[in-house]
Amino acid sequence: MINRFENIIIQTISRLLIPPIQLYALYVIAHGHYSPGGGFQGGCILGASFILMVIAYDIKETKRMISEKINTIFISLGVIIYSGIGAVCLILGADYLDYGILNKIFSVSPAKARALGTFGVEIGVGITVMAVMVSIFLNLVSGGEHEEAQE
């Protein structure tokens, strides 16, 4: 009996395609303020690459790469990056998420500091969205067991 979860064609193609998908996700996050895309979209693509890994291999193999503990830490880390950048702006004397004031730290012009602040916030959003996507998919597909997909 052939195991439904082990297919050499699908596994080989997934191994070939997952790194370009993750690279493209980083491209979408990093170019969010020049072109269509941004933190949420890039995070969704990054989460989709892990979901493809779950589909092609199995849940245990994926949890060896990104365990439940690290996943939960990522969910909180993104929110901390987002609110931390906002709080730094607040501490420096401007409004919440008013990145122009960050030029006191980075010694660049206010416009450049605004672009950098937006980029940092989008990295935080991307990390959180990726981790939440993987978490929701794992919980849905295994009924909360995290052992193997249910029939």
Partner: peptide, 9 residues
Amino acid sequence: IANPTATHA
């Protein structure tokens, strides 16, 4: 690359 693989799956 991806479309024939999805069809196969």
